[in-house]
Nucleic acid binder design. Sequence first.
DNA 1: GCTTCTTTGTCCCGACTGAGGAAGAAGTCA
DNA 2: TGACTTCTTCCTCAGTCGGGACAAAGAAGC
Lengths: 396, 396
Amino acid sequence: MRRMTARPANTHQARLLRLLRDGGPNSRAQLGDLVELSRSKLAVEVDRLLETGLIVADGLAASRGGRRSHNIRLAPGLRFLGIDIGATSVDVAVTNAELEVLGHLNHPMDVREGPVAVFEQALSMAAKLRATGIAEGFDGAGIGVPGPVRFPEGVPVAPPIMPGWDGFPVREALSQDLGCPVMVDNDVNLMAMGEQHAGVARSVGDFLCVKIGTGIGCGIVVGGQVYRGTTGSAGDIGHIQVDPGGRPCACGNQGCLEAHFGGAALARDAEEAARAGRSPELSDRLTAAGRLSAADVAAAAAAGDTTALELIRAGGNRVGQVIAGLVSFFNPGLVVIGGGVTGLGHTLLASIRTQVYRQSLPLATGNLPIVLGELGQTAGVTGGARLISDHLFSPA
Amino acid sequence: MRRMTARPANTHQARLLRLLRDGGPNSRAQLGDLVELSRSKLAVEVDRLLETGLIVADGLAASRGGRRSHNIRLAPGLRFLGIDIGATSVDVAVTNAELEVLGHLNHPMDVREGPVAVFEQALSMAAKLRATGIAEGFDGAGIGVPGPVRFPEGVPVAPPIMPGWDGFPVREALSQDLGCPVMVDNDVNLMAMGEQHAGVARSVGDFLCVKIGTGIGCGIVVGGQVYRGTTGSAGDIGHIQVDPGGRPCACGNQGCLEAHFGGAALARDAEEAARAGRSPELSDRLTAAGRLSAADVAAAAAAGDTTALELIRAGGNRVGQVIAGLVSFFNPGLVVIGGGVTGLGHTLLASIRTQVYRQSLPLATGNLPIVLGELGQTAGVTGGARLISDHLFSPA
DNA sequence: GCTTCTTTGTCCCGACTGAGGAAGAAGTCA
DNA sequence: TGACTTCTTCCTCAGTCGGGACAAAGAAGC
């Protein structure tokens, strides 16, 4: 099929497209109730969208007491690609125009192998998904990388954990390879957008999304929009100091949050505890696998290992300490905890909550939910699809 | 004279009013260059504004090579009132429509005397200013209080340092007494708006404004707009923990920033140092006055007293530590330091800068100015005038 | 099955808006 | 003084938009 070429001609059309994306197929009459347009105007705009092929007729709606209205929906053939590049793995998913995930692949891969190798992998995964028949092509792609991004250009800048990516023209290169529009953002922002669209943050205007993976980052949403900061590094909380005389960090400072907690730090601590014989459970896993990961700690904790539980608890306290400060500062309506370490689950959540509720003022925490993300691995890729659809569903 | 009754009828008129407010009197022709309106449309809107009396003709502009254009300006009789209620004093100022301060009074007063006494004082100051002849009445007032505010209603909520203010209908009461529209906000947000309008933060979209007075707070500006958080307590950084085993704070926690620095803590530390004989300079001042304030520490430091300098340096480190975290999180384009303690000046600024530039990542600090506020005591009142003018200069 | 009422979609008219051309007013510059 | 520039007003014309009228389609009640 021919790929999406048209773009909404005005804000009304953009508004309609987003309504159909977020609310699914809908009748013309009901859309009329949602937007403040006269019937004639609405009819004109809908007709124009039908002409462009962005939306299609979709049968008749149920009667609301009189003549039945015609349903319309976004073109069923539209496909968005969401790519979430993590520190240790790549996620690729295909969604329809309503951003429902139709196919999803995950592949372990070290981001330090560089952009060329990583994109080769991502593109082959996209090709594999297309080969299953769920997509004949892609109308747009949203991609997240684990580091700061100069958003307008779609170029990573000074990414600490991904040498070789600095200045790589991700947007342009990928756009060329895929033959469709591409937007690039920080992986944490993508997760925030995912949870906002389909997850636990629906209907919340201002929230924080803390992602604890190999590193630690924070997506900031202000008035429904992702806030990226002046140079695109907003939310980079992994290097906030939590202990003035603390552990040395890869960034050159001491006592950074990431040096004390996060996937990498947790694995290191667990191995150390195992070698020191403080945890039989972890020792067994270490001798079995040769190394430990956050998942091992989660499993050991689930098995009741006190050392593992203590590691999680201590880490939660550190993160909670930082989040408490951010809550005082930002006064969000919701805090979402997500990322690879979510496997640590409620032990982690409990110690974060304890810390935040104890340290922040009642006015800020009074009605503040702190919850785990709902979407898990699909948050990032859904956010990617959302990112590009926001771009494509705005006036040209 | 009759007070301002009309409001702009549409966004075009609002836009024109704000241009005239921020840029001063201007010619019709030049305004045409600034807004994207056709000549005919512009003429119509200007004529309507002239009819309402919000703007007036103001002679002829200089020629730009041909026929001279007619100048217009905001009605010269418009007067806004800016009221800045601090923990220990009240500032009241009168501005014209361009937000230039025409008269300014300051009076020491403890906010704990309660809203009734404080407003009595503020209203009498406003009356005194009016009696000088600079104003025949007020078209609007913006007021700042040292605590969180439920912004839409203009009501303080759970203010820690001002018992008796909780839930007091500031906006409604003051609006009744003054007979004009009133807006209420946190004093820190007002300071941020002041520095944004007339101070050092002109032309910066995203910045932080840290006010170190009796307590410590932070104004947050995102995309040119003050961000107030979900419950209006955003920027409340005085109770971020800087030392887990630190001093007990009035809020019930330990090691809060305010317990270690700020006007109140600094005075306490100085008195303690004086009594312990660690500083002859401060001892002299203590015996002379019976008590010490932040201003005494500033004077002692200016005189070269090492203990005073050390107190400032240590405090700057604490604040710098917190600001470093906020910079990593928020990635602002500018950090403004203001408030009563600005008298500590460059000693304080230097230690804050050191701390921030050392602890935050280069990407966030690379081009980040950290500067003292330009406006001093007028920042708050200017911000108040700006607050109410933003409200009045928006479509009804 | 018929009537009446409600809802939906289409068509059309009239009011309004806004862009831009033309002309005149008011200056500058040589 | 004359040529040129700039600014304002007036006017026309095209396009837009809202809403009424009407037809189509269905629901509810008898």
